[in-house]
Design a protein around this nucleic acid. Sequence first.
DNA 1: AAAATAAACTGATCCGGCGCAACTATTTTT
DNA 2: AAAAATAGTTGCGCCGGATCAGTTTATTTT
Lengths: 234, 234
Amino acid sequence: MIQLNDAKGISHCTVFDSETSWYDLLTDDEKIVINENSVSITFKKGETVCKRGAFASHIYFLEDGLVKVYLEEKNKNLILMLAIKNNLLGMAAIFDGNNKLPYSITTYTDSIVRMIDINIFRQLLKQNSAFSYHVINLLNEKTAQIYGRFFSLTQKQLHGRLADILLCLSNRIFKSTSFELPLSRADLGDLTGMSTESIIRMMKEFKDDGLIGMHCKNIELLDIARLERISEFG
Amino acid sequence: MIQLNDAKGISHCTVFDSETSWYDLLTDDEKIVINENSVSITFKKGETVCKRGAFASHIYFLEDGLVKVYLEEKNKNLILMLAIKNNLLGMAAIFDGNNKLPYSITTYTDSIVRMIDINIFRQLLKQNSAFSYHVINLLNEKTAQIYGRFFSLTQKQLHGRLADILLCLSNRIFKSTSFELPLSRADLGDLTGMSTESIIRMMKEFKDDGLIGMHCKNIELLDIARLERISEFG
DNA sequence: AAAATAAACTGATCCGGCGCAACTATTTTT
DNA sequence: AAAAATAGTTGCGCCGGATCAGTTTATTTT
């Protein structure tokens, strides 16, 4: 289990990555039910899996790929979280008053999504408490993450927010200090609550200060300790 | 069930108020277990129920009163939500990696909190799936709310955020267009992500514009339609 | 009731970060 | 390969809101 809020401060992380498998908690019969009531769909990079406001008919299990979960309204965008493979998405709609999806999902890379009938999923939650207990833990982990990000975006300024997201991408998504970004600068903006121009300026500043290396989409974190200090102080 | 995200826009609301009783979903035996493993504590106005970072030993059921659930760090504060009676709080710690509370809770008014042993609560979740299904719904409702607030605080400017919180207080807490605020201006600031001074200035502006009436702590919403428009356009 | 403390308010100043416009580089389309 | 569209970059001006420094008004304390 990954620690989300350490003693030092309130960390900002936006990736959800669960190792435990909910599927293993189902009985053999239940597994059959899931299999018969779900389909695996392939999405290309940049395709939309679902849109906020639509009726929620499925729970999405991301079998492979990288997606963003986001809110959009007028020209304002906010990425709520990034998700990598083995994530259950769309659970917030399980009992939303009106059964509408509370967010949209779009892929960053080619992705495979298993779409599970929401009523079947509800049924399993109601009948299998080991499964529903596990789901509660998943939800709580996401909630803790959202709190950290909420704090970061409302209380820190640009430097801190950029440091946060770079550390998060490195630790949680790419698991390496150097990686090739599938997100555009505009997406980084939607993730950190800043304008595209500010993202660019700030990244250049980080580069000039020797905190990161950067050639187009290729990023390398050079001074993690200093990035962490920037994240902490703001 | 209260609708959280309507078609018009992303609403900002910070109060959690559930009518359904989780307690009724327990069996008679389970009710006895809960009763034997919980105590009801009275807190005076302004007292701290729990602090972020402490080991989570209990789930808090707010039997009466009004509390804030918040993050604090250095001189930065962020109120995650307000809760009124009949709310379960502290559930985010049920399976947090390290069993630490992810937020602090303080009362605004004299309050009664039933403190339920967290392991007993876990046990009930594991054995009673009707109960855990209900808890999943509660968590999802909170999540949807947090998303709306997240959007509000990161994408709207002061006017919109103030309109949001005023409408929320009126609709969800006081259930009246006129009410006496138990929160200080500083708390309103922590709730909307703005400085105390800005809260004061903005409220005066709203008053001068005839949107609200205000005498010290007494607030009256005079033009709800315009407040909603301000909330929507930011 | 006086003193002390905290909360509410006001005005002046300053700057972080946004938005615009223009330009370049890269990718996609035809 | 040329054209079009998208993404990335830079400079500049401006303004929303924070911060600071103070005054006034409430609320506690003694």
